[in-house]
């Protein structure tokens, strides 16, 4: 019993001796840097999600509000059921990212185009993989794929290379919007010349 008291006292002395020890300041610098980096990524992702979601919502509202000039029912938006579609991924965009050929800068802003095939001959589409826009997404049931135009700088935000002089040009993108209105993913589209 006395021995245990002695050892407790000896351990207390050791605890007192070490009481002032702290991790070096460089550790704090490192963890704060990592904290900042992690939350900076999350911030732009959230910002991008919200702006694309908002853009998609505006497009849908504008589209629904347009008068039906040809007296025909408006074409149904392409619906994506249960799973995002299997996507054709252009090899050169994924395996060896190169600056993507972009449509001419004269494309009108916020132009929406249906993906449904047209009878007119069309240049072949080249698409990137889908880039998720949500860190944690609720389960996906169904949604729509909306074709929008965005500044080429958006491609940089998901890590695709874009030349400095083309950052302000607009490029086509498909935004996958869930039926709850969340923009879930984005892919970029270019056309074979």
């Amino acid at each position: 019993m006395q021995s245990e008291e002695h050892i407790v006292a000896a351990l207390r002395a050791l605890a007192e001796e070490d009481a002032e020890l702290e991790a070096p300041l460089r550790v704090e610098d490192r963890v704060r840097k990592i904290f900042r980096r992690k939350h900076a990524v999350r911030k732009w992702r959230n910002g991008l999600t919200w702006s694309l979601g908002l853009a998609a919502a505006v497009i849908v509202v504008v589209f629904i509000g347009m008068p039906d000039k040809q007296h025909s029912p408006p074409p149904r938006a392409k619906e994506v059921a249960t799973k995002p579609p299997q996507l054709a991924v252009a090899d050169h965009l994924v395996a060896d990212p190169q600056p993507v050929e972009m449509p001419p800068a004269t494309v009108p802003a916020r132009q929406v185009r249906r993906i449904a095939p047209n009878s007119d001959p069309q240049p072949r589409e080249i698409v990137t993989e889908f880039f998720p826009l949500l860190d944690v997404a609720p389960p996906f049931e169904r949604g729509e794929l909306l074709r929008v135009t965005v500044p080429a700088s958006t491609m940089r935000k998901v890590g695709l290379p874009v030349s400095e002089n083309r950052l302000t040009e607009r490029v086509y993108a498909d935004v996958l919007v869930g039926n709850e209105g969340l923009a879930r993913a984005i892919r970029f589209v270019s056309y074979e010349q």
């Binding site: 009481a19 020890l21 702290e22 991790a23 550790v27 704090e28 704060r32």
Partner: peptide
């Protein structure tokens, strides 16, 4: 939180 708890974790 780091400043409050780092010492204990380090020790």
């Amino acid at each position: 939180l780091y400043r409050r708890r780092q010492g204990a974790v380090y020790r």
